[in-house]
Simulated assay, not measured.
Amino acid sequence: MPTAKNTIKEINRCGWCSNDPLYQDYHDNEWGVPIKDDQQLFEMLCLEGAQAGLSWITVLKKRERYRQVFHGFDIEKMAAMSDQELERLLKDPGIIRNKLKVFGFRKNAHAYLEHFSEQQSFVDFIWSFVDHQPLINQPKTLSEVPATTEISDKMSKALKKKGFTFVGSTICYAFMQAAGLVDDHTRDCFRFNK
């Protein structure tokens, strides 16, 4: 009879994914899975902006606290947050205490409310950059995965024009990967072409 040790198969994941169970769960179940919900896309865009200059695991470990303090990413409630509320958040160790990033969440909520509605959804706008179909890349190694593309450049410019912040091309490409607009799982990853 095989032992438990012999029956456990090692799972190959993308090289950026560490042994942290939270990171592995994110990689296995979220990263690269298409998001077609306005609020979820908005949350992911904000969190990718919070990552700027940091590692994604840092943001991932703080994601639940972000959801608590930013009203579950309810866009109208975020837009209505006062300067005093945001200033108080700068003392909260459960989030990244960068003033530009914290105030940027509210700025993004204002931009969202100004430009998106039932007539033009955020989903339609974001997914229009990839003709509403995920781009399936087939990188052999992480070195073949770009930091930016022509599409992320266009998305960045369009979001900035609408008043969004922390939406540079690198952030936009990471957002595209996270939200499933692009599938960059490497060929040796068990999630490749899933």
Rank of each mutant, 00 (worst) to 15 (best):
T141P: 12
H71T: 01
P93Q: 04
G104E: 01
S169N: 12
F105K: 01
E48H: 05
I96P: 13
N6A: 15
L45A: 03
T141I: 03
P2N: 05
I126M: 10
P134V: 00
E64A: 13
D74T: 07
T141R: 11
D28T: 11
P146Y: 01
Q68L: 09
D74L: 10
G72M: 10
W31G: 06
Q68F: 10
Q138P: 08
V167Q: 03
P2C: 06
G32T: 01
E114W: 04
N19A: 12
H27N: 07
A158W: 04
K194R: 15
N108T: 06
A111L: 11
E118W: 10
Y66P: 11
T170C: 07
M78D: 06
K162V: 03
K61D: 08
G72T: 05
M78K: 00
N6G: 12
Q39G: 00
R65E: 13
E87P: 05
C14P: 10
S55W: 03
A52E: 08
L181H: 09
Q138W: 13
V182N: 07
N98G: 02
A4E: 14
N137D: 15
A178P: 14
Y23H: 05
F164A: 05
P93M: 00
L86R: 03
T170Q: 10
Y112G: 02
S55E: 08
A178V: 11
E144I: 02
Q120H: 13
L41N: 12
N137C: 09
F73Y: 12
Q120V: 08
A52R: 03
I35G: 03
I35W: 06
F70V: 01
N12S: 10
T170V: 13
P146D: 06
Q40H: 10
A50Q: 15
S169D: 14
Y173I: 01
G72L: 07
Q51W: 02
S152P: 12
F164N: 02
A50G: 08
M81A: 08
D37M: 08
S128Y: 13
D124L: 05
K99Q: 10
T186I: 15
I136M: 13
P146I: 05
Q68W: 07
E150P: 11
Q39M: 06
P93F: 00
T141C: 07
M176N: 00
Y112M: 04
A109M: 13
P34F: 00
K160W: 03
D25Q: 08
T7N: 11
I96L: 13
F103T: 04
N193W: 06
R191S: 08
D37F: 09
T58K: 07
N6R: 14
P93T: 03
Q39P: 04
